[in-house]
Simulated assay, not measured.
Amino acid sequence: MQNTKLLLASLTFTGLVALAGCSFPGVYKIDIQQGNVVTQDMIDQLKPGMTRRQVRFIMGNPLITDTFHANRWDYLYSIQPGGGKRQQERVSLMFDGNDQLVGLNGDFMPGVSRDEAILGEDNGTSVSPPQHQDQQKPEEPAKPGSLLDQIQRDVDDVKPVPIPTPEPLETSPQ
């Protein structure tokens, strides 16, 4: 009789400890991350006309490549911090028939930093990407006798030097 009371008490105590562990404050719960991590810097590096290889170099392998939509790559990322609410981000990249990047759709947009919008640095009035400085004026040659001209002459006068190859080590014992 006493053994059954002891067994019942220990089972009750074990059950209470197990239940307390589920919601006990101070119990560490891990962050659950799934998918491709996509940052704003990665999106800003994408340019129309890039090949699939160039996009894969920047973004990594897509999480989803759909058989029915072969010209679309989907990158999904979700995180559930410490048992909190799950957050999810999605980016879809579209390619044309020549395997060149033609479009982008999702939670990230080129040139728009969500961090700046959250911190209030972006007015939030418009979501237009910043003007790119692709329209730079053509580079003018350096003026004769200037420091830039001297540096260019020094660079042009550099002669390649062959790298010496080491001789193989002797493998025979002495």
Rank of each mutant, 00 (worst) to 15 (best):
D99N: 13
Q100L: 13
L101K: 05
V102Q: 12
V102G: 03
V102W: 00
G103K: 04
G103L: 00
L104S: 02
L104G: 02
N105A: 13
G106S: 02
G106F: 04
D107F: 01
D107K: 03
D107H: 08
F108L: 08
M109E: 14
P110Y: 00
G111F: 06
G111V: 06
G111C: 09
V112E: 11
V112G: 01
R114L: 11
R114F: 09
R114K: 07
D115Q: 15
D115C: 04
E116H: 11
A117L: 15
A117Q: 12
A117M: 12
A117F: 11
A117K: 13
A117R: 14
L119N: 15
G120I: 12
E121F: 13
E121H: 14
N123D: 15
G124D: 08
G124S: 10
G124K: 10
T125R: 14
V127W: 15
P130R: 09
P130H: 10
Q131M: 09
H132W: 07
Q133R: 06
D134I: 00
D134M: 02
Q136A: 13
Q136P: 01
K137L: 04
K137N: 07
K137D: 11
P138Y: 01
P138H: 04
P138Q: 08
E139Y: 00
E140F: 01
P141W: 08
P144E: 13
P144R: 04
P144H: 03
P144Q: 06
G145L: 00
S146M: 04
S146Q: 06
L147Y: 07
L147M: 08
L148N: 13
L148H: 06
Q150N: 11
Q150R: 15
Q150H: 07
Q152C: 00
Q152G: 01
R153T: 12
D154V: 05
